[in-house]
Design a protein around this nucleic acid. Structure first.
Lengths: 339, 339
DNA sequence: CTGAAAGCGCTTACAG
DNA sequence: CTGAAAGCGCTTACAG
């Protein structure tokens, strides 16, 4: 490999000033046809590419956004990422995904790094373990928007669904199809994060609204996560109580729960109805297909990017809160095939 | 927000030269305790953070790697990404995921951009629509490694499993449990990409090796993708022939196939055994759990990063080829619960 | 151990 | 429409 060519090399070869090369490369000022041709030829001959670092340093912007997620192999985050990347592309921004691997220490480091580094023009944080005040402490000057279910006390731009309402919607649905012993699956053993707490609150409120009694025995806890949590919590339940429906805090949890039910020969939905949350692609193809709370991912992505771009142009905007619309996607796991 | 502080601001406030600030910030030369304290105080007071662009421009390296994948919401890519990010982290590199959204035009653009931009010290390309010669044409000077199933003619470092062998292993397994009408699901309608072709070749070879006849009627084609392809192709098959096993080219395809079978009341594995490929997390939790070809993702990630780091330090190394070990993860979808 | 100065590769007011 | 020159914010040989 020969040494990388610079803009000056092009200028020399074409016999023009660096300024003219820059103009041609960026298509700015009307350059005379003759010079443009000469420059383009030199660019071609030498295989010149502008140096991203130098350009960004000079311009003070990069055209890059970061999307910070805890775990990219959780399908909800993967699907969200895809949607955001595609929407951003349409707006002329390139989004890179930055995974923190779900540990709070790494989350802090990545956020500090991203907001302080000038590498990104804007940042999107997807559900975080960090509290709003933590976030305020470590955040640098890069504009950002927070996604997901935490309440951020009006400190930052925030986009999320109405978790309490959606959870209550699930209970209303299960009650409407005649279920009375509805378990809630998703509680960990440690302190509850914002999302779980909101969905739990919605569960309690939903029971109240339809007039069903609350039974703590229907709220198992597990130290596992995702599918394993669903499997584990459902096994606990099977060993100790009767129930005719499972409200799972995520589709992954629901998938784990359905595996546990199948392993005991329990039929879904005849014996137990199951509802998940996120409406990931898998929900449509599980056996049986899974009823799930479906956030409008496209609206979510568009609003988030809109907020971010607003804030990039004016950092002084007062923080906003957007409630993403949701629907309950009803499938066989709650209503059966006889729909 | 006040204006961002520079290294010079710190130098002025601490009453030292920029060189000393740089030394302190980077922990290079033994700076006297007195000066170090002064500098650290100034950094603290002014909330100084080094400018990533300026530093990278000067150093000629960024500490960043890119992982270019077609579709981040395909679980195999998401799981692969997570593994690579975690391995790279241990090596002191930060990996950002760059999704091309599966279109060849965008793939070209992203690769060109990544290899020519100096933003990344190294790049990992995951299975691509591009042919080796395409890749050679557009690639810039940034070192890269190609993952996945294409044959790249020894032009680049390449890490992949032995697709032909693994496919033959699947057939051997299905034959060993008494299956004789084994369909292959994964063929599209257009020109076959490298991966599909290799798995198809392995299917044909596998049949030969166990002495089963090849029947083109057992190789349906579909214009859909992923789960939908599996569903669609299986429906075609159900409408036109008998079969007692499905060899699916990916777990997503297998999940779609199992949905189709379930919708017709066909039992897995009693009536039809199903095998997938990739061993994604979902495979363990599907109903029934899915037998799947399992690449050793950890070895894959470690080898890939090793190759890349080698090449970063010496671009002249001859291209290498690594065969990732695989196993067949046997679950209920082929052998039933009576294991 | 520390300072003054050059330079990484761009872009863009400032002149013409 | 084009050129010569300064500067974005760092790091590091060169002196001391």
């Amino acid at each position: 490999m020969s040494k990388r060519q610079t803009l000056l090399d092009i200028a020399n070869r074409a016999g023009v000033s660096p300024r003219t090369v820059s103009n041609v490369v960026n298509g700015y000022v009307p350059v005379s046809d003759k010079l443009r041709k000469r420059v383009e030829q030199a660019v071609e001959d030498l295989g010149y590419r502008p140096n991203f670092m130098a350009r960004s340093l000079r311009n003070g912007r990069t055209g890059l956004m970061a999307l910070v997620v805890p775990e990219i192999d959780v399908p909800y985050f993967a699907e969200l990422s895809r949607t955001i990347i595609e929407e951003a592309d349409a707006l002329g921004y390139r989004v890179m995904i930055d995974q923190t691997a779900g540990q709070m220490v790494r989350e802090r480091a990545h956020i500090a790094n991203a907001t302080q580094s000038t590498l990104f023009d804007g940042i999107i944080f997807s559900p975080l373990a960090l509290s709003p005040s933590d976030l305020a402490d470590i955040a640098g000057s890069t504009p950002f928007v927070v996604l997901g279910e935490h309440s951020h006390g009006g400190l930052f731009d925030h986009v999320a669904l109405d978790n309490v309402q959606a959870a209550a919607d699930v209970i209303a649905h299960l009650h409407s199809i005649g279920r009375t012993r509805i378990a809630a699956i998703g509680q960990g053993v440690g302190p509850s994060d914002g999302t779980k707490q909101l969905r739990y609150d919605g569960y309690v409120r939903g029971l109240e609204q339809v007039g069903l009694p609350f039974d703590p025995g229907l709220v198992p806890q597990s130290s596992r996560r995702h599918r394993e949590l669903g499997f584990d919590a459902t096994m606990q339940l099977l060993d100790r109580t009767d129930f005719d429906a499972l409200f799972c805090f995520s589709d992954l949890i629901a998938i784990g729960a359905m595996r546990a039910l199948a392993s005991r020969g329990i039929r879904v939905p005849e014996d137990v109805a199951v509802v998940g949350w996120d409406d990931i692609a898998e929900a449509e193809f599980s056996n049986p297909p899974l009823t799930s709370v479906a956030p409008d991912k496209s609206v979510l992505a568009k609003t988030t990017l809109g907020y971010l771009i607003d804030r990039m142009s004016d950092p002084a905007i007062a923080p906003r809160d957007f409630v993403v619309p949701h629907t309950l996607q009803i499938r066989e796991s709650s209503v059966g095939v006889a729909l």
